[in-house]
């Protein structure tokens, strides 16, 4: 295995396996079924967190500059990161799929319609953009996530491919009405996950709180001479929100997507009736 791929896997796999272990332990401890429960949220958090590790860890260790000057093309670095990301996310995705199929009648079977849950890894993988904040990374991440999940579910359900072409618009539109709660809660989960991870990345939770944490050049801190120094808690909150701007954007996009598709459900033929 080449040194670059080995390094990328070392960055992401331990945490991915850690999340997998955590979910299995939680299940064994009796958190109940996977579907629609806390464990789904945990898995989604894990997928989001793992997806962001490839770039997030590089930024945390400040190794990006040095890596980009070694004689390897950026395309190869990017491709290696995506391979490692897919490898790290697949076990979690597999667990999600297997767990949902192990539940009762409400779990989708081969007779059921397309379940939009397959698109969640796309949102998760697009969390790469939470740290790079580049549209291209977001699109690439979403594409990889969608491809990964479609390949996986396609292998599990070969008929899925034919159904997709006919069913996606109607299914998403109608199911969005049923899944608004799920989408909003998942968006909040993504936001919280990214919030905590980024806070950790910036060393705040580790206890390296310095006097500077309340004095950042955010627009709030610019008002007045020393007024921002008298509101340390507010400054801290605004600073954290500012750090999570990309995550907030993703969360708002998820909510907007579900609201728009729900509003447009009348335009599409009735899709799946799966209750999520």
């Amino acid at each position: 295995m080449n040194a670059l791929l080995k390094k990328e896997l070392r960055l992401v796999l331990p945490i991915s396996l850690g999340v997998l272990g955590l979910v299995c332990v939680a299940y064994q401890l009796g958190f109940g079924g996977f579907k629609g429960s806390n464990l789904v949220a945990l898995l989604l958090m894990g997928i989001v967190g793992v997806s962001s590790l490839g770039y997030g860890k590089e930024l945390e260790h400040q190794t990006l500059d040095l890596q980009l000057t070694i004689p390897v093309s950026r395309r190869r670095i990017w491709a290696t990161k995506l391979i490692a990301q897919v490898v790290a996310v697949l076990p979690l995705l597999a667990l999600l799929n297997v767990s949902m199929r192990s539940e009762g009648p409400s779990v989708p079977t081969s007779e059921k319609e397309f379940d939009p849950i397959v698109l969640w890894p796309a949102f998760a993988c697009s969390s790469v953009s939470l740290f790079t904040w580049k549209l291209r990374s977001m699109i690439a991440g979403a594409a990889v996530g969608a491809l990964t999940s479609l390949v996986w579910f396609g292998i599990a359900e070969p008929a899925l491919w034919t159904r997709l072409a006919h069913q996606i618009p109607g299914t998403i539109a109608h199911q969005s009405g049923e899944t608004i709660r799920g989408l909003i809660s998942s968006a909040l989960v993504i936001f919280l996950c990214a919030f905590h991870y980024r806070s950790w990345m910036h060393g705040e939770i580790r206890g390296r709180m310095t006097a500077e944490s309340g004095i950042h050049n955010w627009s709030l801190a610019r008002e007045g001479g020393g007024s921002h120094r008298r509101r340390p808690l507010l400054n801290l909150i605004f600073k954290e929100l500012r750090l999570q701007k990309p995550a907030i954007f993703v969360a708002m996009a998820c909510i907007a997507f579900s609201l728009v598709t729900y509003a447009c459900r009348g335009l599409f033929p009735e899709g799946g009736t799966e209750t999520y």
């Binding site: 670059l4 070392r10 960055l11 260790h61 400040q62 190794t63 500059d65 040095l66 004689p71 390897v72």
Partner: peptide, 26 residues
């Protein structure tokens, strides 16, 4: 070319020799 930035970061799980081997491999 080779570059030494003003702030240097390495992968924390590597030792000095492993870091040198990593960069030498490219």
């Amino acid at each position: 070319l080779a570059y030494v930035p003003d702030y240097v970061g390495f992968y924390p799980w590597m030792s000095v020799q492993e870091t040198l081997d990593f960069f030498a491999s490219f």
